[in-house]
Computed example of a mutant assay.
Amino acid sequence: MSKVFHHPVQIYYEDTDHSGVVYHPNFLKYFERAREHVINSNALDKLWREQGLGFAVYKANMIFQDGVEFAEVCDIRTTYKLDGKYKTLWRQEVWRPGAARAAVIGEIEMVCLDKDKRLQPVPEVILDSLQINEQE
């Protein structure tokens, strides 16, 4: 896996359910935001506009170990690696302030697709951006 990237997420009231705890699907949004910061949203936009290539979630697995509450600022910790020519694996964790373990763990598999939704190799520009060595 790669080095750990950190992305802060403020928990707003709108993110929570009636008990003040984050509604579970919102963690997927937090993970998406963190991945965009790792890859660089401008690079993703350029890749789509110029080459018609983008990324889609192929598989997502989440483990919920602790509730995350309104008004907390959590740290999304992200690592990734290449899995073959077409897929990247992302491990993302939500850490509450001062916690001894991750509140939520996500394992996300992303694939590269063209505009016709056909599988494509992860582009060199993304491999370079992520500093992924295909020999890993």
Rank of each mutant, 00 (worst) to 15 (best):
E14A: 02
N26R: 04
K87T: 14
E136A: 01
I39C: 05
M1Q: 00
I105L: 06
E124K: 04
V94M: 10
K59F: 02
L119D: 03
S19V: 13
D15M: 02
Q135M: 02
R33I: 03
D75A: 01
E14W: 02
H6L: 11
I105E: 12
E107R: 00
E93P: 12
I108D: 05
A56V: 10
D15W: 10
Q92D: 08
G84A: 02
F27Q: 10
C74R: 10
I108R: 13
L113Q: 07
E107T: 05
L82R: 14
F27A: 08
D15Q: 01
V104N: 04
Q92Y: 03
Y58R: 06
R49G: 12
V4L: 00
N40F: 14
V4Y: 09
T88P: 03
K29H: 05
P121H: 02
H18L: 15
D45L: 05
W48C: 06
N26F: 05
M1K: 01
V68A: 10
E124C: 12
D75H: 15
I76N: 01
P25T: 05
G106W: 03
E36F: 06
Y80E: 04
L113F: 02
F5L: 06
F31C: 11
E36M: 13
I39Q: 14
V104F: 06
P121S: 02
E107H: 07
E69V: 07
K29M: 11
H24Y: 13
D45V: 04
N133M: 09
V122A: 02
E93S: 08
E134Q: 02
Q65N: 02
R33K: 04
L53T: 10
G54E: 10
D15R: 05
V21I: 15
I126D: 03
I132C: 06
Q131L: 13
Y80G: 07
A100R: 15
V125P: 04
F27R: 11
K81H: 14
M62D: 03
P121N: 12
F70N: 13
R96N: 00
E32M: 13
D66A: 15
H24V: 01
P123W: 05
P8H: 13
R101F: 15
L119P: 05
I76K: 01
R91G: 05
E109F: 03
I105Y: 03
R35E: 00
Y58P: 08
I11H: 15
Q10C: 13
L127C: 14
Y86M: 01
G67Y: 01
E107P: 05
I108H: 07
Q92M: 08
V57I: 07
E69Q: 15
T16C: 00
M1V: 10
E50P: 09
P8R: 14
V104A: 00
I76F: 00
E124Q: 09
G20S: 08
D114H: 11
A71H: 04
G54S: 04
L130H: 07
S19N: 12
V22S: 05
S2Q: 09
N133D: 14
A103S: 03
A34H: 12
E136D: 15
K85I: 01
E109Q: 09
R77Y: 01
T88M: 06
E93A: 09
Q131N: 11
L119H: 10
F70V: 00
V22T: 09
G20E: 11
P121V: 06
A100T: 12
